[in-house]
Simulated scan of single mutants.
Amino acid sequence: MSITGKVALVTGAGQGIGRAIALRLARDGADVALVDINASKINQVAGEIAELGRKATVFVADVSQLDQVVAAVEHTYSTLGGFDIIVNNAGVAQVESLLEVTPEQVDRILRINVQGVLWGIQVAGKKFKSLGQRGKIINACSIAGHEAFALLGVYSATKFAVRALTQAAAKELASDGITVNAYCPGVVGTDMWVEIDQRMADITGAEVGATYKKYVDGIALGRAETPDDVAGFVSYLASPDADYMTGQAPLIDGGMVYR
């Protein structure tokens, strides 16, 4: 079933998985609001969406700040004439031993990965209810939200938190016809994994590229994930085909973590 004519907001839309999600939603018929902290990157994605024949608007925001998320949603509604889907995709990685992580590092990743999702849920839920309509809330989780990994302990904790927020929000908002789900990628070939691999090399002394190869070698389907692999599943969650699904955080990792 189609999402043609729907309006979607995607955070972290300037690169990687967020960019792929925004483009896939546009290809599948949605108009898209692109939200990111980097203006130049979302402007480029907006041009790509325009070439697909769909409308796009851009909004620079820090998702850890509630007032900026409110402003992004209001901009989306006023500019694109509707608001049906939010993809709380923005997030950051962190590679650090639990014995060495600093208060500043913990504060930053919690603000972005957890509060950023929470504010997206809160603001979108209120907007859908004020409009008297159903809506789709879709959150970025991870295989690390199902199984914690060494040197990714705090990152894993933030993704476990996203699963908790997804489940709780699904229960709170179901009576309003609002569904809340998450997606859990594995090893995706993006700049984030370049950073993870480099930091793993710094900490463990492994060669650059060795950590990435180790994880990819453990994928049952035999290759690293692409942003498009994730985007196709997110488009499904955004579509009417997923109307009877809520509170779930499925793994889409090519066969790494099994639940």
Rank of each mutant, 00 (worst) to 15 (best):
V208Q: 03
T190F: 02
L9V: 11
A201G: 15
R223V: 14
D229P: 10
H75R: 06
L23E: 14
F83S: 04
A231I: 06
G29D: 13
A169M: 12
S142P: 05
A148Y: 06
K159G: 06
V73G: 11
A61N: 14
G189P: 07
A224Q: 04
K55I: 03
Q105T: 06
A144D: 15
Q122N: 02
A169V: 08
V208E: 05
V10D: 03
I121T: 03
L151Q: 00
G12E: 03
N38K: 15
D217C: 03
A170F: 14
R19M: 09
V154P: 04
N88V: 09
D36T: 11
R134T: 12
L25C: 05
I42D: 07
V69Y: 08
L52K: 03
Q248E: 13
S142Y: 08
I252W: 05
T166K: 10
W119D: 06
T79V: 01
D241N: 11
K6Y: 01
V117N: 07
E74P: 10
E195H: 02
T4I: 04
G132R: 04
F128V: 08
Q115H: 07
I109R: 00
Q133K: 15
Y244T: 04
L118S: 03
Y215S: 04
A157H: 00
Q15V: 02
K126C: 05
A61G: 12
A26Q: 07
G189E: 15
V230Y: 12
A206W: 13
A93Q: 12
L251K: 12
D202K: 07
L110T: 14
G14Q: 13
L165R: 01
K171N: 11
A206Y: 04
R108Y: 02
A224K: 05
F160V: 13
G135H: 06
R134M: 05
V123Y: 06
A174G: 12
I219F: 00
A150T: 11
A220M: 00
G186Q: 10
S156K: 04
D36M: 09
I112E: 10
A93V: 11
L165T: 00
L237P: 06
E195R: 06
V70A: 02
A182N: 08
S40P: 01
W193R: 15
V63P: 00
I138Q: 09
Y258T: 10
G132V: 10
A140N: 14
E48R: 05
S40F: 00
F149A: 13
A26S: 11
C141W: 03
F83H: 02
V95R: 08
I86Q: 03
A242C: 12
N139F: 03
A201V: 15
K41L: 15
G81N: 11
M192D: 04
A39M: 14
A61C: 14
R163I: 04
R19Q: 15
A174W: 14
F233N: 02
V188K: 05
V95K: 09
V188Y: 04
I252K: 08
A144N: 15
N89Y: 12
V60K: 11
I49C: 07
V208M: 01
T179V: 11
M192R: 02
A30Q: 07
I109Q: 01
Q15E: 08
W193Y: 15
H75M: 11
Q68Y: 14
Q94Y: 04
N113H: 05
V87S: 10
V180T: 12
G132W: 06
I85S: 08
A210N: 12
F149I: 14
V10E: 04
Q105Y: 06
D253H: 12
